[in-house]
């Protein structure tokens, strides 16, 4: 078919009224204009704080900053990418982050699931517990860090009171510093984990579990053979979200460990490493490359999640 072919069949009816059609078009154009005006504040904010830095990051990757302050940065193209991501500093930081993720994700999810199952029972006053369990979501990293810092304090903290006194103290100890920071992150994520798991549990119909009960399944079988399979989309979602959350951990490391601590290399998670590379080593190029690697990791996880969510549709009853 070419563009010149006359269409077969009756000609399309003429527009009912010329003026009416134009009026509609004008109105649509006006509506579109209004939409853009209303979008503008959000676009400005996103542009300034998300899109521009994001794009700028790719530009920074291409420039190398000389180690001596004051000299202008130099265009090197893609040449500094390989040295940066193979540097011991970066690989160590990546390994630390992965260990951190492995510490945080399973524990926070299992605890969240356990609390959700406990709070799912229809008992009086359970609402109070639900509020308590989900409250960690609304506490800030700074507050949580200060509280946990105090609890872990070798003199006034909870650890010495419990008779646990590692030397050097937990937050200055090469073995215990990372688990300590992970502990705070677990605590912080627990609220969200609890909320996600609770929502998932509520989507499991009671009748299904009752049917299983009459069919002869004990509580353990009901949990493992009914609840967990039906909860699997929720659990997968929670795994991805908590992994992303753990990859982005920063606040607790910064507040509790900091730059001056001897163990900082043992808690040098990616984001913290990126910040140090930028601020202390004044090397924006390398920092940008590391940030891009982190971005790709999180992008991968997000795509995985989206694919799975699509599959989940066929899972509906």
């Amino acid at each position: 078919m070419t563009a010149t072919t006359v269409p077969a069949g009756p000609a399309p009816p003429p527009a009912p009224e010329r003026g009416g059609g134009r009026g509609l078009r004008t109105r649509l154009r006006k509506e579109a204009a209004l939409a853009y005006v209303l979008l503008l504040p959000a676009l400005v904010l996103f542009g300034a704080f998300s899109f521009y830095p994001f794009l700028r990051n790719f530009k920074l990757m291409l420039y190398e900053t000389p180690p001596v302050p004051g000299l202008p940065s130099r265009y090197v193209g893609l040449h500094q990418i390989i040295p940066t991501i193979t540097s011991t500093q970066f690989t160590q930081s990546l390994v630390t982050t992965i260990i951190f993720v492995i510490l945080v994700v399973p524990i926070s999810l299992l605890l969240g699931l356990a609390l959700a199952v406990a709070a799912h029972r229809k008992l009086k006053g359970m609402a109070v517990y639900r509020v308590i369990f989900s409250s960690t979501v609304v506490s800030s990293v700074a507050v949580a860090s200060v509280v946990f810092g105090t609890l872990l304090n070798p003199v006034v903290g909870l650890l010495p009171w419990l008779g646990i006194n590692p030397t050097p103290p937990a937050l200055e100890n090469t073995t215990w510093a990372l688990p300590s920071v992970a502990l705070i992150t677990i605590w912080q994520f627990l609220g969200l984990s609890f909320i996600i798991m609770s929502a998932g549990l509520q989507s499991v119909p009671d009748e299904l579990l009752e049917a299983a009960r009459i069919d002869g399944a004990g509580s353990w079988t009901r949990f493992w053979r009914m609840t967990v399979p039906l909860l699997s989309p929720t659990i997968f979602f929670a795994v991805v979200v908590s992994t992303i959350y753990a990859f982005q951990a920063f606040g607790a490391v910064d507040i509790l460990i900091g730059n001056q601590n001897a163990v900082r290399l043992h808690t040098n998670v990616l984001i913290y490493n990126i910040l140090n590379t930028l601020q202390i080593e004044s090397n924006p190029g390398a920092a940008a490359i590391m940030a891009t690697v982190l971005f790709l990791i999180i992008l991968g996880l997000t795509l995985l999640q989206l694919r799975f969510l699509e599959r989940r549709v066929s899972y509906a009853r």
């Binding site: 009748e207 039906l230 509906a316």
Partner: peptide, 13 residues
Amino acid sequence: VAMVFQSYALYPH
């Protein structure tokens, strides 16, 4: 006893 529920309560997985 065996029960048939209004929603059938089949195990979807």
